[in-house]
Nucleic acid binder design. Sequence first.
DNA 1: CACTAACCGGAGTGGCACCCCGTTTGTCAA
DNA 2: TTGACAAACGGGGTGCCACTCCGGTTAGTG
Lengths: 164, 164
Amino acid sequence: MRSDARRNYERILAAASAEVAVTGADASLEKIARDAGVGSATLHRHFPTRQALLEAVFHDRVEVLCAQAAELSLADWLRAVAEYGATTRGLAASLLAPPAPSGCETMLSDAGGALLRRAQQAGEIRADVAIIDLLTLVNAVSLATQDGPEAIRLTTLALNGIRP
Amino acid sequence: MRSDARRNYERILAAASAEVAVTGADASLEKIARDAGVGSATLHRHFPTRQALLEAVFHDRVEVLCAQAAELSLADWLRAVAEYGATTRGLAASLLAPPAPSGCETMLSDAGGALLRRAQQAGEIRADVAIIDLLTLVNAVSLATQDGPEAIRLTTLALNGIRP
DNA sequence: CACTAACCGGAGTGGCACCCCGTTTGTCAA
DNA sequence: TTGACAAACGGGGTGCCACTCCGGTTAGTG
């Protein structure tokens, strides 16, 4: 990778982070390119799809989230995912959109999968749920409660059920 | 309302129903107008916002759903809502987007609210949930599982909780 | 039948995603 | 240091979109 290419890549990523934080997952790619000081063609060359750009934007933070799986209970970790998803514009939407074969979704599945397996072996969690079910549920809640303080409450509700 | 205005209104609604069923909540309004044989200005005059058009498209079906609240248990009714939301392109997205003051959301709240109150008085449901929580949850699941067969399973999971 | 308010729709504006291709630039070997 | 070439760039083009303006048309009324 040539030095100017790497420089532009970083600039685009920085501009995208800022813009996505304000506008969400459907931010204008043109504006991101403009803010980054590159032509729109350059943006499209580095990130062939909008999804690819979003994955890059969220990658680091998702990694942190995955690392926390080692220190939290399953329920607490899911709540952490919900909170981050709800407060980070565009993340939930980008996670739900496509089953990207090797992206943030996979990282979360791996981290949460281990956590879930342990909890199931300890008999704390029913055996008929998969990690993908829980992540889908949590992301759905994050998406629905975007910017609201309800994400954690609703996640907890979904994990506990509606019976007394 | 003049007769030609009413006629165009109906045509637009029909075209919109067809298009939204295929494309989803972000269908092209231009194409809808074209299919309906009217100018785009006419569409915008009758439906000032995209949301207004979607509300009109889904209104009848949501009414049916509300009527079913009289014959079903709360859980079954929520599953019906989930199923309809997941199989009807664009509905879940349009219900979650804005807290429209007097639209489909309100109809569902009213119908479900009565159902919930009864269930809570019977002690079947915890007292600290509101109907809006449950609808948000169900719509979130519908949105996340768009076109998938998982909507009902995940809804049931969320209602029952994750413990054995 | 004439008149007017309601209604219509084509054309215009500004924005967007995405791509083509002539031009520039980094790199490396001579 | 210099030359050559692949790699990367970006302006400009295309086609689509939402939304609005305004001159022309039509339905209904007396």
